[in-house]
Nucleic acid binder design. Structure first.
Lengths: 269, 269
DNA sequence: GTGGAAAGTTCCATTATTTGGAACCAAATT
DNA sequence: AATTTGGTTCCAAATAATGGAACTTTCCAC
């Protein structure tokens, strides 16, 4: 409740003043988001901390179980994160409300359905419903992907107006995942204008080659949370026609989820 | 604040001195492990912090995304935990090595297979393989359950000797989940003695009525990590005979996982 | 509505914790 | 044996956390 509401005008550079915690979390991110386990020296070169300081910080994270070391002295994210997260997931009301709608959408389309929320410039996937559980289940949940090249992300961004989108994405590098990935904000904004008109977003192999999706935005009534639902599948199966055909279903699912949120949470006010 | 370092001769009670981080994590646990969202005052009465202090601590956790507040001012675990955890899970080598064996075991038995690691007095479930994905998938992963009343937990404990088990469980309350739940360490230890002889553990409705399982221990070569695999199902389907029949399969799976860990990680030494 | 209590937030001098340079230790390399 | 590299410990100085109290807002009873 410290938080002041969106008074978007100024407020450009975020101040991030969480003192000790902020530093430790930045370090945790550094280690957890790395592609592979890192040795002390690797971390030392990436974080610009003096050795003594870094060493103590790592020890604290270790002692709390947020990090672990393998026998080669490489640092890895710890399991305590898992158990904390499972609580976060289990108790997430939005996810619970959305779930039946995701299932329905999955049954109607036969393809994989995702629910994701926008956090800064990234989409965090909150849930996933697949038809046949061919391979890994959990994989995608909790995963963070860039907003500018995912259906859910672009749908969520489309709720904001252009200046807000620009402000939010300022400083984000547009990594060219595929040939179709937007290269800059300009391209993204024209795409988003179309998304606003239609009410749904397409991702035609922008994030991953061979993967397409159609997504619709969800916003909470207070406007604090932006999210999206999507139907995703391999390009050979999920043609442009299919995407078009599913678009209304995806919009309807998004609308139904919003409605349920309002009903469930609204009256309590 | 009391602040003595561990220079006491005995050094029995673990000292948990991670300074600022420790305090904040304790608070995060308090909120995340609660059954339901808590208001500021609820938390205030549970943590014995002064109001000003607590307020700032919560603000910091909020700002880092580790907590969130709903519009009623109630605190909930934040989604940032999810994204951190997904990395922790995806990069967990033990889980990756075990996975094919879990699948195999699932196919052979037709029931749900769990992989869990012992953390203190609790089992944290690292993975789960179900036959038909009837209901929720993710649910169990990351979940923490007491070691004394779960198959995986008892199997893992059976690797320790009695004094170690007693020391570890000292101060743990034996919550009577069902009529079959062990009431005290004594009962648990006789059970564990049998588990050691057999090489596998049973859980016959000790944690949850109507749920039975058979589990085998896994220990890493360095002995630092204790874990277990289990096959679980509803009592009406999973009879005592079935459990007996599956026991060797579960042991074999555990052995295979250990073997793979040694092969994969051993040589690097 | 009005008064009053409870809930939530901010302030700031005091106190505790973190910082970081440097010394130290241990293992691998020359 | 000498040197480099990787990791750990120490401690005075710098910084951040603390907590009592004052302050503001929200909620409730009347």
């Amino acid at each position: 409740m410290t938080m002041k509401q969106s008074d978007s005008v100024g407020d450009v550079g975020r101040v991030r003043e969480t003192g000790t915690l902020g530093k430790l979390m930045a370090l945790l991110d550094l280690v957890a988001l790395a592609d592979r386990p890192m040795r002390f020296t690797d971390i030392l070169s990436l974080s610009d901390q003096p050795r003594g300081t870094l060493h103590r910080q790592l020890s604290h994270l270790l002692e709390e179980g947020l990090l672990e070391v393998d026998r080669d002295g490489r640092y890895l994210p710890g399991i305590r994160l898992l158990s904390l997260a499972s609580r976060s997931w289990a108790r997430n009301e939005f996810r619970a409300v959305a779930e039946p709608h995701l299932r329905l959408l999955q049954e109607k389309t036969g393809e994989t359905v995702h629910l994701g929320v926008l956090r800064g410039t990234e989409v965090i996937y909150l849930d996933k419903v697949e038809g046949r559980q061919s391979v890994r289940m959990y994989s995608q949940i909790g995963n963070a992907s860039p907003a500018y090249c995912t259906g859910v992300g672009k749908a969520a961004l489309s709720v904001l107006d252009d200046p807000d989108v620009e402000a939010r994405l300022a400083g984000v590098a547009f990594h060219p995942y595929t040939d179709h990935t937007h290269r800059d904000v300009a391209g993204l904004l024209t795409d988003i204008a179309a998304i606003r008109r239609r009410g749904y977003a397409f991702d035609r192999e922008e994030h991953e080659s061979g993967i397409c999706c159609v997504a619709a935005p969800i916003r909470s009534e207070d406007g604090n949370m932006l999210a999206g639902v999507s139907v995703t599948g391999p390009a050979f199966r999920v043609t442009s026609e299919k995407l078009q055909e599913w678009a209304p279903l995806v919009r309807a699912a998004a609308a139904a989820i919003m409605q349920d949120m309002h009903n469930r949470l609204g009256p309590k006010r």
